[in-house]
Simulated scan of single mutants.
Amino acid sequence: MKSLTLLSLFITITASSAFASQCPEILKGEQRLLNSTDTVNLCDEFKGQTLLVVNTASQCGFTSQFDDLEKLYQQYKDQNFVVVGFPSNDFRQDKGSEEQTAKVCYLDYGVTFPMMARSSVKGSDANPVFEKISDQAGVEPRWNFYKFLVNKNGDVVATFPSSTNPMDTKLRRVIEQQL
């Protein structure tokens, strides 16, 4: 009887740790950082955090949202929250080199949140992160600066159109509910 109890305990502990180490589908894989050869393992970097995933463009009417995305990131980063930017030229407003895109993000707007390399965010060539986000949310980005809130479990819990300012009360309320 004692060995059966120990066996049950061992199976429970093993199953619990295996479950805890699983990575949400959205975070499986690596991404190259903007204008860099460095890559980041999304699971290692972001597992267990609330994410605001944003497709960005450096030459868009909404590009000034980088200021408020940075403010939002600074406001909540100590509460397991991260803004993650994915530059894309899908809407033809992130032309030129990645170096130019990085200049806009880092120098012009002072972005400190993670920015991934330029990639497609819709269609058959979509970045795997956006492919999974679109599958869950049932919507692809309709324009630049479309925002997807992903909870700590890797589930898309809200989407916000490009016109929603990052400091919008409703958006911040939904983020706070996830923290």
Rank of each mutant, 00 (worst) to 15 (best):
K152L: 07
V150T: 01
L149K: 06
P128R: 09
K132R: 13
S120L: 02
E131T: 15
L69I: 03
R92T: 14
D108R: 06
Y109G: 13
A117G: 07
L69A: 06
N80W: 06
P87H: 09
A137T: 12
E140H: 11
S88Y: 06
A117T: 01
V121E: 09
S88K: 06
A126C: 10
K132V: 13
T112W: 03
G138E: 00
F148Y: 15
S97M: 07
T159V: 13
E70Q: 15
F148W: 11
D125Q: 15
D108T: 10
S134F: 02
V104E: 10
L107G: 12
S124K: 14
S88N: 09
Y73A: 12
E98G: 08
D155S: 13
E70C: 09
Y73L: 03
T112N: 06
E140V: 10
M115C: 02
E98P: 05
V83W: 05
S97I: 02
E131A: 14
F145E: 05
A126K: 07
S88A: 13
F130T: 11
V139M: 12
Y146G: 13
W143V: 07
K122C: 07
F86T: 00
F86R: 05
M116A: 06
T101R: 11
D108W: 05
D135K: 15
N80L: 07
R92P: 11
N144H: 01
F113S: 02
P114A: 11
F113M: 00
V104N: 05
V84L: 12
D155Y: 05
E70S: 05
G138S: 04
S119K: 04
Y109F: 15
V139F: 02
M116L: 12
F86E: 13
P114K: 12
Y146S: 14
F130I: 10
G138C: 01
F148I: 10
I133S: 08
K147A: 01
Y106R: 14
G123N: 12
D125E: 15
